[in-house]
Amino acid sequence: MSFSFRKIDFFHPYIVPVIILAVLIMGYIGSFNYRFEDPLNTQTILTIIFAVIVFIIGVVIASKKFTIEKEVKINFLSEKILVIFIILALVLQSLNIVLLGGIPLFNSVLKSNATTNLWRIAYPLFLILINILLAKYYDKKYLILVLLGALVFGLNGYRTSVVGILGSVFITMFYLGKISRKLGIIFVIIIGVGALAIGYIASQSIATQHWTLNPVELVFYRLAFTLEVFEKIIPLAGTTHGHILSMIFSSGSPRSFIGNYVLHYDVCLTSSLFGPVMLDFGYIGLTIQMLFMGVFLKIIHSLASKGIGIGIYSIILTHTLIWIETGPTDIMIWFLYLLGLILIILALKKD
């Protein structure tokens, strides 16, 4: 029996503003309860609401002007080829951990060096191909590969990898009509527990920090801290003149740069979906980014009716949702948007 609310499109691009507002509420609550001197100010809240409104406008524009309803087919991606390369991705990530000399999840020093070139190949390869495999050749047995991927990449110590894999697969299966009530509950529990556990274990492995918060409190704290960083960015809006964007597509660490620039100490920071673009280009940049994301996600969503379009949309949506906290500061994730652009071009191409 299919999911009883199957007719409701839970993963329409409108889920982005819903999650943004949920993060804002949780962060606001967290800013009261923990070490912050004051709760989030009105300007921060209104700026985020403004960003949400612009995103929604982008979705509405795309719904009326740019909808593409067509299945994109890539015939050379056979079932066997997909499975082989998925296993290769798991092997590469396992080799990455071996070469690091330990498990990054339990060692903050190893974690800081865990996103190697091997990982940069293995993670997107696994993420993209497991979703395409399920979208084209769904079989329950392939869920074993999904769990293996979540485990192997989760050992890197980054909960975003686990959420990226499990979240995108969940959305893919939803659009395939494969999510029963029981399976849906199991998936949500695994995603939630996995993300909480990795975030908590990783925080405990930092030798210079001593956390007394439990895993749930830590979530509220992290969201509050991320939004507090964004609050400190707003008065500095537009002062980096595109430097963060250039770092994303060259060398350096945008998050570390933000830590030095905003808080004046050497730390890698998440600054929300809005922080990097606000620092670089101010409110004009924020408006363009949110409008683009709204239009782009809706166009890709219109291709998520069958075939690989489902898998690609699931990947892009999941990582956009992850960006709400972490910020779009990783070139590998922008590569996923490029993948979406290729999908659009293939859809527009005449048969």
Rank of each mutant, 00 (worst) to 15 (best):
S2G: 07
F3G: 08
F5Y: 12
R6A: 15
R6L: 15
K7W: 13
F11W: 12
H12L: 14
Y14S: 14
Y14C: 09
P17W: 08
I20E: 04
L24Y: 00
Y28C: 06
I29Y: 10
G30M: 13
S31F: 04
Y34E: 03
R35P: 02
E37C: 06
Q43C: 01
T44N: 00
F50M: 13
A51Y: 00
V52D: 15
V54F: 11
V54E: 14
V59N: 07
V60L: 14
I61N: 09
A62T: 07
K65G: 06
F66N: 13
I68R: 06
E71I: 09
V72Y: 10
K73A: 12
L77N: 04
L77A: 08
E79F: 07
I81Y: 12
I81S: 14
L82K: 05
L82S: 11
L82R: 04
V83G: 08
I86Q: 01
Q93N: 15
S94N: 07
F106D: 03
F106Y: 14
S112W: 10
S112H: 10
A114W: 06
T115S: 07
T116P: 12
R120L: 14
R120N: 15
A122K: 01
A122M: 03
I132H: 00
L134V: 05
K136F: 10
K136D: 02
I144Q: 06
G149W: 02
A150D: 04
A150C: 11
L155G: 00
N156L: 10
N156I: 02
Y158P: 00
R159K: 14
L166S: 03
S168M: 04
S180H: 04
I185G: 11
I186G: 04
I186R: 08
F187D: 03
F187E: 03
I189G: 05
I190M: 05
V193A: 15
V193T: 13
V193Y: 05
G194P: 02
G194N: 02
Q204T: 10
S205K: 04
T208G: 09
T208S: 15
Q209T: 10
H210C: 12
V216N: 09
V216A: 12
F220E: 07
Y221I: 06
L223P: 05
F225W: 12
L227R: 00
E228L: 06
I234C: 02
L236M: 15
G238D: 08
G238F: 04
T239I: 10
S246I: 04
I248R: 03
I248T: 05
S250A: 13
S250T: 14
S253I: 02
S253E: 11
F257Y: 15
H264C: 09
C268M: 14
L269M: 12
T270H: 09
S271W: 03
L273G: 01
G275E: 07
G275L: 06
P276W: 03
M278S: 07
L279K: 03
Y283R: 12
I284T: 12
G285I: 02
T287D: 11
Q289C: 08
Q289D: 12
L291T: 05
L291G: 09
V295Q: 02
I300C: 07
I300R: 00
L303E: 01
K306R: 14
G309Q: 05
S314I: 09
E325V: 13
E325I: 13
D330E: 14
M332Y: 10
W334V: 08
L336Q: 11
G340E: 07
L341K: 02
L341I: 14
I344M: 09
L346C: 01
A347Q: 01
D351T: 08
D351F: 11
